[in-house]
Design a protein around this nucleic acid. Structure first.
Lengths: 346, 346
DNA sequence: ATGAAAGCGCTAACAT
DNA sequence: ATGTTAGCGCTTTCAT
């Protein structure tokens, strides 16, 4: 970039050494008010901007933190997950005087190269990873390389700190809700089980059935991609089994399922009740409005940054694992309002 | 970060100077195959990773490019604009061996500080700005500071290069379409006119009316926020004027308008035809499906990066201004299919 | 309270 | 083809 003027020059102009200028730049004590003012004045007048690369090299610290995400169309397009996460992170970074860097990698790339590229190209003190797959090699590669990082999502490796929403509990609550509403044949549309969140949501589903003494009927479970089309196809298959209610592992899938039900000439929630997951903006825009599970993604971003800051500050201390609570958002597709003589608007 | 081993050390281990190691690292010619192999072997074996800050400082080039966006809930949440843009940029960066950095700033901050923070914290060779407001001081500040950057969107400053979608033409085409369909009283729901895109879309609307000899009736024009609620409120006001068709400056607004029409007991497109703008995923999920204008956002991201690369390579040459064509996506809300005896699915 | 000086890890002339 | 040598612009001891 176009940095011209240096610390040296500021020093010369102010009649002090560069060390002193560095001190005022970094708000060190032991600088007389008189000198501090003079130096500050020169910096302001000249529009001096320190060279961040030089600071990083000399100080061994960049004050930059990297958000690492795979370029999966799903995450980036389908839902505002990433946007919320980035916002939370940006907010927390602000507080800690950190800048945020983005590293989007193409999952198609040679997996061994990704960590390499990240480490030799990007400048950062620590990273936050998200949307990783189960057993993603990137995670262990970074851990092996001693890179400080936090995962948003979960990982079995005991070395890794993570922040995650409680997917098991979220699904559990949703399915319990359906059970309490009196539905008997409760099915599920589940996501790819290579995804840990998908796995956990399925776990919540089976756990709720078990706890409330309902049988798990595999014929009422259909798997699909985390997309509307996946939900549509899964629902078409399930319809033959005459389910009374469906728990879908994402709102996108739930909306697809909704459409499939309606296309079959049936009504939601009267013929089939439905609960989704994510609380996308979308969820309240379909008719009937989607009952769903809301995750604190923004908060997850904040907590991830806080955790990373602690790691950077205090070194390797035992990994921290944060699991954030979710919230059931009751709208129209689960039938609760109808049953309660509803009409209450959200 | 945790970089331990240095170029020097690699050199010692391979029995060559650090300069030679640097040459093989950067694929310079004039290194014998024998030495190159030996050095490469040591780098691989030790898992050597160059220190990017040192490279940046010494080479005066970071190979990092910064995407600068205001933290406006609108952009980040409402639509996938940012995600598409980032994807396009990431793809182009990949090609040019650049990494991508994100700088989210809070519009609430002291405006004078933003450029300062960006320049002293982030490491980058050039920047891409988007979602700037008309007369945004950040733009001129960067230009004044000699920072190489490209705007996605437009700007009057002759120094700035930009890539934009042709908002005037997009709106013009949409409104012309409504005119050709035979509608007479064609209204518009327009966005905040501090936003250049909103301004251009309004311009396209008035231009189409003028070109086809229709009067501009101000009572048929309502302004609102670029959100569903803004569209809803605007449509409620317009309904009193009995418009036959409405051009809405965004899909979010169009969907709000759709809802307002339906809530008034009227039908789209039979009572009021509707065209939106953006082609959000949403547009095809409402019923009836939204006719809208699609913008090549991903392509804009790519072109912006290409332009920035040219600026970095060849210096200041006259600013480049790229205006990308848009595309009318005809679905159900404009009534074209109905008029043509439709039923064709998109 | 301030200055001098030694790096931080790399690149890029300039030699040879 | 390879080595030597200055820096790049800053931070940080260590003196004073």
């Amino acid at each position: 970039m176009n940095d011209r003027i240096t610390l040296q020059q500021i020093g010369e102009m102010a009649g002090v050494s560069s060390a002193t200028v560095s001190r005022v730049l970094n708000n060190h004590p032991h600088v007389s008010g008189e000198v501090r003012g003079r130096v500050q004045e020169v910096m302001d007048r000249t529009g001096y901007r320190p060279n961040p690369a030089a600071r990083t090299l000399a100080g061994q610290k960049s004050n930059i933190l990297s958000l690492v995400i795979p370029e999966t169309a799903q995450i980036l397009f389908t839902d505002p997950y990433f946007a919320h996460l980035a916002q939370g992170m940006a907010q927390a970074c602000q507080v800690h005087d950190y800048a945020l860097s983005l590293f989007i990698f193409h999952a198609a790339e040679d997996e061994a190269k990704i960590a390499q590229t990240l480490l030799s190209r990007q400048i950062f003190d620590g990273a936050i990873l998200t949307a990783t797959q189960i057993g993603d090699p990137l995670v262990s590669q970074l851990a092996d390389n001693g890179v400080p990082f936090v995962l948003v999502g979960q990982h079995e490796d005991a070395r890794v700190s993570f922040v995650d929403a409680d997917n098991v509990a979220g699904a559990y609550t949703a399915v319990s809700h359906l059970i309490h509403l009196g539905y008997e044949r409760i099915g599920a549309i589940i996501g790819p089980q290579s995804n840990l969140a998908a796995l956990h949501r399925y776990e919540g589903y089976t756990k709720a059935l078990r706890d409330w003494g309902r049988p798990l009927d595999e014929r009422l479970v259909a798997q699909g991609e985390f997309l509307e089309t996946g939900g549509y196809a899964a629902m078409r298959r399930l319809l033959a089994q005459r389910p009374q209610a469906i728990f879908a592992a994402s709102d996108a899938m739930a909306i697809g399922a909704l459409r499939a039900v309606q296309d079959a000439g049936l009504a939601v929630p009267d013929d089939v009740a439905l609960i989704g997951y994510d609380d996308l903006p979308h969820a309240r825009m379909v008719k009937p409005q989607l009952t769903t599970v809301r995750q604190p993604i923004r908060a997850a971003g904040i907590r991830a940054v806080e955790t990373l800051m602690d790691i950077l500050r205090s070194g390797l201390h035992p990994a921290r694992r944060i699991v954030l609570p979710t919230e059931l958002v009751v709208r129209d597709t689960c039938g609760a309002r109808r049953l309660m003589g509803g009409g209450i608007s959200n």
